[in-house]
Design a protein around this nucleic acid. Structure first.
Length: 475
RNA sequence: GGCGGCGUACCCAAGUGGUUAAGGGAGAGGUCUGCAAAACCUCCAUGCAUCGGUUCGAAUCCGAUCGCCGCCUCCA
């Protein structure tokens, strides 16, 4: 078994991956706040983690994947009071917070399904884990690392800093962070760096729960700590998230978690770089306009082409969204599918692949295990198919099938659909008529019949050996 | 101001010390074909922002310069 290497933000270096309890791997991904549709940049993040998960599974690991859903406590940064994002949308749309969260979570899950992101073992929602959060906050208070005030329970960052543990992820000392602005509406905080574990005295907040400190709601960071511990244990193998979460969210998660448990919270922190907009600008929800999967589909691009598009760049590199890039990915998708549809039945049932495929298997695994080098893995898969065509030896179906466990393009389904698609009688009649027309060299009529067939969704191709193949489009 | 990242062909993008700088898309030519499609073949960066340096050897390490971007406030 070849070792898997991954970049760990904690050490700022590529490390050999060693889970605590092989072959099991605990994987926690910071999930979205469900108050708006998730844009393509969000989707890229979950594609990155899907590639990670599938690569680990390809290596024989069993992955326990948990994704959280933030449906309370995530504040806007409006200077004034700051409003809960979910509640803000609820007000604007005249819905309840629960309706808003349900609606956008469903939308998100539908998008993930369209790009073949495997569902996690657990989707966990903040509002359904209030008890776990309260318990954890109690542990933090008991450890002397948090204090209760009339406006809320705050984590004592100064005290934590005394233990010389702050800033490990971001490599920034607290003094370097310009936190002056943050004091304004939280005079109870001992230090501007302190962050809320539990918020009190916000009567206008729609979502409130009883707690030992009074009615209120949880701070944003505590949910990830509480839920990852609940489902994956107090030390998890891999925690993923966007680069933007390194300096605040993940620092705080580490601080509060380790204060409570006194042992490491996460072994490998893995962060993805952003998808950038068409002008090289960052895509962000707060900026207002952002591209969605539905925009891609409206361009005539298959959602799975977006999957390939994202596979074409490393998770740690920024990726520039572009129409050309999406179309290039669509070409790749068509190429794989065309191979799957036209592969001879014998090559599908053959259990032993051509010898030349061995080298590709090795290169594919090496690419994945080298810090999840998906662009290289994709290149290997494309080259494998090209070589099969070149040699006229299509006995690579097992290898390609193995690759597709990571590529996630559903090529087996494409093949099955093409093989099982029955040609209706009236279509067969048109085909026969065209064949006859070609034989009598009435090409005008043959071309007319081809156009008819294409209008009905059938693609007509004349192969080298003179036969003609007909297949459903977009199988 | 502080922290961090990036700059590889027309476009996207691998490669981070050592043979001819992956792969895809676009483009050009060709094979096949009645035509087309598909597929395959050939061509497409003596050069990796610029200038220095280290080295037997650098896109890859170091320094400077220019340009772009992110974070430090909600964001994957």
């Amino acid at each position: 078994m070849k070792p898997f290497f991954i970049y760990n933000t904690l050490s700022r270096s590529v490390e050999k991956f060693l889970p605590q309890h092989p072959p099991e791997v605990s994987l926690y991904s910071c999930g979205p706040t469900v108050y708006l549709p998730q844009h393509l940049g969000n989707l890229r993040a979950y594609l990155c983690w899907d590639f990670l998960r599938r690569a680990l599974e390809y290596n024989g690991y069993t992955v326990r994947h948990v994704i959280n859903v933030t449906d309370v406590g995530h504040m806007t940064s409006d200077q004034d009071a700051g409003e809960d994002k979910i509640e803000k949308t609820a007000r604007e749309q005249h819905k309840s917070p629960l309706e808003v969260a349900d609606f956008y979570l469903k939308l998100f899950q539908d998008d993930l399904a369209a790009i073949h992101v495997e569902p996690p073992l657990v989707w966990c929602r903040a509002t359904e884990h209030i008890d776990a959060m309260i318990e954890l906050i109690e542990r933090i208070i008991a450890a002397g690392m948090a204090y209760v005030t009339p406006s809320g329970v705050y984590f004592d960052v100064e005290k934590y800093r005394g233990e010389n543990r702050a800033g490990r992820l971001s490599r920034q000392s607290l003094d370097e962070q310009n936190a002056a602005q943050r004091l304004e509406h939280s005079a109870d905080k001992k230090s501007p760096h302190d962050f809320a574990l539990w918020v009190l005295a916000q009567p206008h907040h729609l979502m409130q729960w009883d707690s030992p400190w009074g009615r209120g709601y949880p701070g944003w960071h505590i949910e990830c700590s509480a839920m990852s511990m609940k489902y994956l244990g107090e030390t998890i193998d891999i925690h993923t998230g966007g680069m933007d979460h390194i300096p605040i969210h993940h620092e705080n998660e580490i601080a509060q978690s380790e204060s409570a448990t006194h042992h490491p919270f996460v072994r490998y922190f893995v962060h993805n770089a952003f998808l950038t907009g068409k002008e090289g600008a960052k895509i962000s929800k707060s900026a207002g306009k952002f591209p969605l999967l539905s925009d891609v589909i409206a361009m005539g691009i298959d959602p799975l082409a977006f999957r390939i598009f994202c596979m074409g760049a490393k998770y740690r590199s920024e990726l520039a969204l572009s129409d050309d890039g999406l179309r290039a990915a669509q070409s790749n998708l068509d190429y794989f599918r065309e191979f799957a549809r036209s592969i001879p039945a014998g090559a599908v049932s053959n259990s032993s692949d051509a010898e030349f495929s061995c080298e590709y298997r090795e290169r594919f695994l090496d690419a994945l295990n080298n810090d999840l080098n998906t662009p290289q893995a994709l290149a290997v898969a494309l080259e494998l198919v090209a070589e099969a065509y070149r040699r006229g030896d299509y006995n690579i179906w097992n290898t390609l099938g193995a690759f597709d466990r990571v590529l996630g393009l559903g090529l087996a389904e494409t093949q099955t659909a093409a093989a099982n698609s029955a040609i209706p009688v009236e279509i067969q009649a048109l085909i026969d008529a065209r064949t006859a027309a070609r034989k009598s060299r009435d090409f005008k009529r043959a071309d007319q019949l081809r156009a008819d067939l294409e209008a009905r969704g059938y693609e007509v191709k004349d192969n080298r050996d003179g036969t003609t193949v007909y297949q459903l489009r977009h199988a």
